[in-house]
Computed example of a mutant assay.
Amino acid sequence: MKVLLGIIIIILIWIFCDFLLGRKKHMRIARKEESTFLYGSLDIFPHGPELMADFFNELKQAKAHIHVLFYIVKKDQISKEFLSILKKKAQEGVQVRLLLSRLGSHKVSRDTISALKEAGVEFAFSNRLRFPFLFYSSQVRNHRKITIIDGTIAYLGGFNVAKEYVDQDPKLSPWRDYHLKISGESVPFIQRVFLKDWKEYGGVDLLGDDALFSKNAPGDFLHQLIPTEAGQLEEIFVERIKAAKTSILIGTPYFIPSKRVFATLLEAIHRGVRLRVIVPAKSDHILVQEASFPYLRRLLIAGAEVFEFKNGFYHAKTCIFDEKICDIGTANFDKRSIFLNKEINCYIHDPKYISRVEDIINKDLLDSKPLLLADLTKPNFFRSFKESIAGAISLFL
């Protein structure tokens, strides 16, 4: 028994040191990057079936190159259709590069990967274990969900490729999410983000290939793109919240903010900023709801409004500050996206487009029910027990 206890203690010490040192190294080598303010055409898809129909159609029209990065691709029918399109385009002579998360896309089999490569698709997994920080590297995940087609069209947002995203999972349907289709000046920047990840995980540097970058005409809407990793997102959230004067709206499937971000939110409420938060009424992962309850409880006490989305599962990732800046991207409002994941968000600065997004959000608010403080303060031993566990591991949820 003493030997077993000693082994457990050694393992825990190793995990702690591995994570701490790995994070310090990651923070040291991570470079802050953001686009300039650019003009582009933006379309938004809140429904999976409409998004996939448009997405698959654009993939089929590709002439030169397709670059795709997803966190989740599975083994179901919609995933097979997606991979089939990529194989066909590669066989037609289109350059196709597919980068998937090893964890999120673990259902993509070796046989499937071999078939992709035989068809001419260049394939790589992100999130490989790396010495000497094995535990830390296992937790850092590329959560960016972006596609670039012929250097002229890009997609970015919360959707992945699996049946639940197209309303084919009864437990989570209908799936609500926000995904942008982008054309214009910012597409080359998104291309560069992909190619940097491809260099890291695919082992090939294509950043100097001018043929992959198009000079696109500007669109109508002013926006900025900011990729983040290793804690960079925390500073962005803090700056935006501090600058807010009248209102903040947050839509997220997982509300588990860092201490600094949460303290800044409370300060905003105390200076009179109206805070509204939309979260799902149902959960798609164990303990994520329980991890959010202590934060939501304190927000309600401070005067915030919290809404639980009831019409399916809410997976959207958005923030709107003073109706002047709208953030739509891949990052959740949680510690994992803030500190561990590689993410990319689009910050829209056009009042007309923000009004369009607000119309979608207002529909989601109508499909939601206010969460009351009484709902979270009723004695419930099982909920309290799960909250304590969730709080201890909230960084890794």
Rank of each mutant, 00 (worst) to 15 (best):
S394Y: 08
V94C: 09
I78G: 00
F16T: 08
I113T: 11
D327Q: 15
I113K: 08
Q168S: 01
V68R: 08
Y155I: 04
Y165P: 00
A291Q: 08
N127E: 14
K60F: 06
L207S: 10
T252N: 03
H315Q: 11
K310A: 01
D284Y: 15
L12C: 10
E267G: 04
R271C: 10
S137G: 06
D169S: 13
N332R: 15
E185R: 05
D350I: 09
E387Y: 09
D111L: 12
L266T: 06
R23L: 01
V306T: 05
Y201Q: 02
L397S: 01
F396E: 09
I182M: 11
Y39V: 00
L300F: 07
L371Y: 06
D205R: 01
E33D: 12
E200L: 12
T318S: 07
A30T: 14
K88R: 13
F70S: 01
Q168Y: 12
D364Q: 14
L397Q: 07
A291W: 12
H349M: 07
L296C: 03
L212E: 09
K87E: 09
D322L: 03
V357Y: 10
F19N: 05
K369Q: 13
F133Q: 08
I190K: 02
W175K: 03
V73I: 14
E33R: 12
F131C: 00
I113R: 09
V108L: 11
I72V: 14
S105E: 11
L4C: 02
W175Y: 15
T377C: 02
F55S: 00
F56N: 09
P379C: 02
I85D: 09
I226M: 12
I13E: 02
D167F: 06
H285N: 10
V166E: 01
Q95A: 02
L233I: 05
F159P: 00
S109G: 07
L12W: 06
D350L: 08
S84L: 08
C17R: 05
G391D: 14
F189R: 08
D150R: 12
D334W: 03
S84G: 14
